[in-house]
Design a protein around this nucleic acid. Sequence first.
DNA 1: TTTAATTACGTAAACGTTTTCGCGTATCCG
DNA 2: CGGATACGCGAAAACGTTTACGTAATTAAA
Lengths: 335, 335
Amino acid sequence: MAEAVNIKRLAQELNISIATVSKALNDSYEISLKTKNRVWNLAKELNYTPNPAASNLRSNKTKTIAVVIPCVANNFFSLSIKGIEEIARQYGYHVLIYQTHENIEAEITFTNSLLNGRVDGILTSVSSSEYNSEYYTKLVKKIPLVFFDRVYDNLDAVRVTTDDYEIAFQATEHLIEAGCTKIAYLFGLENLPAGKARFAGYQDALKAHGIAFIEQLVVKYHDDEESNLQQIKELLGNYKPDALFSSIEEFIIPAYCACRELDLQIPNHVKVLSFSNLSTAKLLNPSLTTISQPAFEIGREAAKCLFKILNNKQLDDEQDIILKSVLIKRESTGC
Amino acid sequence: MAEAVNIKRLAQELNISIATVSKALNDSYEISLKTKNRVWNLAKELNYTPNPAASNLRSNKTKTIAVVIPCVANNFFSLSIKGIEEIARQYGYHVLIYQTHENIEAEITFTNSLLNGRVDGILTSVSSSEYNSEYYTKLVKKIPLVFFDRVYDNLDAVRVTTDDYEIAFQATEHLIEAGCTKIAYLFGLENLPAGKARFAGYQDALKAHGIAFIEQLVVKYHDDEESNLQQIKELLGNYKPDALFSSIEEFIIPAYCACRELDLQIPNHVKVLSFSNLSTAKLLNPSLTTISQPAFEIGREAAKCLFKILNNKQLDDEQDIILKSVLIKRESTGC
DNA sequence: TTTAATTACGTAAACGTTTTCGCGTATCCG
DNA sequence: CGGATACGCGAAAACGTTTACGTAATTAAA
């Protein structure tokens, strides 16, 4: 609808060729500083900005990356995106967002739609519904891709994760030191390396302290809020655990609600601890002991890696970048 | 890096022209069903997807919209994005995200970068730092744009908002009915219509109940967390309000912390109420009375409006869509 | 002085689509 | 049977860039 200011227009007004204009705009060594300045000035004057479609088509560079995640309405992911965006801005890149809602089919549909040159690269935290290794094995060969937090193992791709095993081990020890001997585990991400690592950290910490692992104390996450609440209530009622270790943030509300409904006091009757990036954890009743992942830094780091790849910079040989989570002790575990 | 499957390739394999292939792919009436089926089958077989850049360049349609917001790491906005994305998927659109971090210059830079055909339209919730009416007056003439929640008034553009004035009035009445007479106001978004409406609702409710408005009971939001805490502490210490009415979520943590540090019990000594979409409001200590905006629906509604515009559908004459917020009474106001 | 190298710019093709226009064949009606 | 109509398809231009290559003028080297 505007008056179409493009390279041709600039060329006409300056009486030079469009090739010269293009090169000047891209600061090519072939063009004299004098000409460059004429072009730059006019471009600014006319508010010229290059047409991205034309530029993409010719150069095969989109200056765009995609972020494929389960959901933005989650503290971890929204913070990650914030980190990603910050880096993307530094590099002058645009950011597309795709939410899979934990649906692997949506995930595949989205990523497939990105392979035709829509983006230069992908950042993803995969869905937990299924572990489709074959698909990603092929995918990483077709487009630069960096996994963060929820990753696929054994692939030729960079992974940015946290010390899930170690921090889960440490958190479990914290519960044990607080006197707990019947620690229930609220199990999320069971199909993914992160979920498995957290669970292993929990199990190994029990073992290291001579506590038997009891299968009945494990509750697996369901998509449905109500059913999680029910499960936890049954767990609390039937097996009387003295602690709930939640491996994902989504269990917090049902866990707290279950305790209230059963008149169980936290932390007196049951201690609670959860992986979480809730900013209001310290304001909960009682304040919640959390394992806080460096979500913002994970986003930044993952984006940095992707841009290194896109700029053909050497990655510091390491394909795995592991950031440290932190255990923040609060009232829900008696601190 | 792949083996380049494009229209030309399809045309060669089927021994027809690229024009026919293109038309068949777009389900043109000019092409026989027989030919269409041949094309569709081969396209599926070869995993053909059209090159977006080429398509954009020629057709001036990007199938992409931009969302420009202050920050994704905020319950309201992340929920809005979720709603936007849902609608965008239905229409087969892609979604670009831009975070202004309340910086109007970033906002202008971003939106300007979208005017050269990168997107078909924009959804935005503007930054609170400044009210630059002149800029947006020009902008809405250049590209389809829908405002949501944080809008500009008196512009020829669709606005999706909530009943800020009414709900703030109602919330203030709730505090008054709970016995409060010295209700402090934590003032956010003061440059924007939403902020002004909320403040007006508060003031008018006071007036309606014969309570004098006291300037000293108003605290204005600062970017810096620590200074908000200090301000609230001074407010509580110097003027002894019996209620805090927060117009934005960002005041919740400093408000709660200030009360704790000053040993003021909520709701006994001071009642607290806030605009907020915190999912954990009911778990806070004490549980927080909130004005919850229908963030998800706002996102959906705004996106729907934009797509109506993009499809040249008649908008139901109304430029303003106003959704209802809901006051959820909890312990922090004595319920 | 001749030749080679460099500098500064232009020509034109190419990227993969969409779309206008036109053309031949088949169908229909009088 | 002649003319009009519709149908199905192809040729080619166009979208706005980037870039390989050519070229003329200038400078440096021999």
